[in-house]
Design a protein around this nucleic acid. Structure first.
Lengths: 138, 138, 138, 138
DNA sequence: GTGGTCTAGACCACT
DNA sequence: GTGGTCTAGACCACC
């Protein structure tokens, strides 16, 4: 069972924190296409949030094509679909966030190699579980 | 003259966009300690924003120690003071944003080497102009 | 054998999608009065839906006079009975949907002649097979 | 002042009715890029709906790129942006709705020329006010 | 059981 | 003033 949690002290709205966690679990292959997510009510109970807050998070994720809400059935992870992008398109999507990293690094006077090392670490966490065989685990 | 602009479609508040741009120009050495920023009135006119919005951005930047508001004189860039941090502290500050990059990259199915290359590019833009003399460049 | 399928990503309820497909096949003369439709159980199996969902679709279609459920025999297409309507009545029934087409076309900046051409195409697909004999076509 | 109204008897949810009306006014040039829409609270008052219902309608329209919500300022119509589509893309977007028209027409036994005439009427209502000069009117 | 819509009302953040 | 988030709770529709 995956762990979801929201930090109510953070100024990031709860529904956005939830969205980010779902995306994180998908990116790191802890959630895979076809997997079912906790129902709106379950999630609301376990996070001590109002169901409508979960509805908002799930709806936004659906708009972004990340998950699928099926009436009367539940909530499911969709399969990727971002394979058809060009290098330039991906670069343009990523650049603003990456520039923010560079700016923050400069302000902290963090050396470039440290920043790159941290990024490598995080990228490794995403990829490594990818097509490894599941059957040995369960 | 540096270019400031705000994107009203973005849901990042205007004052934050301004803050980010000031920080970006400082990080990339387009603004250096002692340099003067546009006055509140000037900035408000050129961005078509309410002066109180500029006041908010400048005040926050002052609280963060990035700039200095000198009553009746103008607004000036201070010299950075983040040298005393440990590697671990810098890493912890940067990790959340870097993880966000990794997650977004995974969602776009962007290969790790592309992401690292983009980061290198942005970091280079920060460092290269550092204590080199200005006149040769522009 | 006719192909029925439901799109779980669409927010149109499954029972409505089924109804629409039955109507489409009738309108395009792929199903004609007296033809037998798959039984509730067959349909439920082939669409991976709950039988009660098929029951709902078939019942609604029966209420609309489109099909006939014959206890223990099967499900059959009835012959259409909408001949007695005035032009004004038909126009009023169709206008809301047609206006929606016009609005969507405007939003896509689609030229009027393209929209009309598309409608002609679809109307042709309805009419052409009408009382022609089946064997020559398929 | 534009008239907005919702029909609470209809099974179309209120927020969707509002979305459709906004789109209709834009398609028929009664609302143009840059125009301001009633604020959430105004709209809620005038329609006797809860503000959160308006928020939902406006948010969806923003996701679709139709309008822009500006914090602290108001709600504004965005400029088109659908100019870059190919004929094939527009056709694929419009076909499902147009097919629905054809199916409904067939069920009503409405002759093709009537349906086409109705569509022409509605398309004319969209286009005619387009680049006509405004100054003579006001 | 599931998701989807709506209300009434509160509180916060932005301009 | 504006939009943005969240709650508590109701009612409906789908499977």
């Amino acid at each position: 069972m995956l762990l979801f949690q929201i930090n109510s002290a953070s100024h990031v709205p709860a529904y956005r924190q939830l969205m980010d966690q779902v995306k994180y679990y998908i990116a790191s292959n802890a959630l895979r296409p076809g997997d079912r997510l906790p129902s709106i009510r379950e999630m609301a109970r376990s996070l001590a949030l109002n169901p409508t807050t979960i509805v908002k998070a799930y709806s936004e994720l659906e708009h972004e094509g990340v998950i699928e809400l099926q009436h009367g059935r539940g909530v499911f992870v969709r399969d990727g679909g971002a394979q058809g992008l060009s290098v330039a398109e991906r670069a343009e999507s990523l650049r603003p966030l990456i520039r923010q990293v560079a700016v923050e690094a400069a302000q902290l006077a963090a050396p470039a190699d440290l920043v790159v090392r941290l990024l490598q670490e995080e990228l490794d966490q995403m990829d490594r579980k990818e097509p490894s065989d599941e059957s040995s685990g369960s």
